[in-house]
């Protein structure tokens, strides 16, 4: 049985930049634990004769020829941006 602790929940919420209300935390811990339990249940199956799949469909990746097909639509995209300047998207400061 897996049990997600509040600390683990806080960590993954932080990594995903999600704000979770204190009152909602027990429910999230519970839901996530059930998901992990399902995974554990699947893990218990013997899959030694099954080749792993990265996708639910048994097809492989199509590729496209290396050609420029997109035109410059900056104006259109920047119309819906909250803030732009000199062709740049302006965002809150990010300095490490």
């Amino acid at each position: 049985m897996s049990n997600i602790t509040t600390e683990q929940l806080d960590k993954i919420a932080h990594l995903a930049r999600l704000k979770i209300e204190e009152t909602d935390k027990p429910k999230y811990c519970n839901d996530l634990s059930s998901i992990l339990n399902l995974v554990e249940q699947i893990n218990a199956e013997d899959t030694s004769n099954v080749s792993p799949s990265a996708h639910s469909l048994d097809v492989t990746q199509r590729v496209r020829p290396d050609e420029v097909t997109e035109k410059n639509e900056r104006e259109k995209f920047q119309k819906i941006a909250p803030l732009t300047e000199a062709g740049l998207y302006i965002v809150p400061p990010v300095i490490e």
Partner: peptide, 27 residues
């Protein structure tokens, strides 16, 4: 050294004006 991006058909020439080579996929 391709002509277009790895997952979109936008060009990758160096030194273009900002955001003129960024299509919906790149965004």
């Amino acid at each position: 050294k391709t002509q277009s991006k790895i997952f979109s058909g936008a060009p990758i020439a160096y030194g273009a004006l900002p955001n003129t080579q960024a299509c919906a996929i790149d965004l």
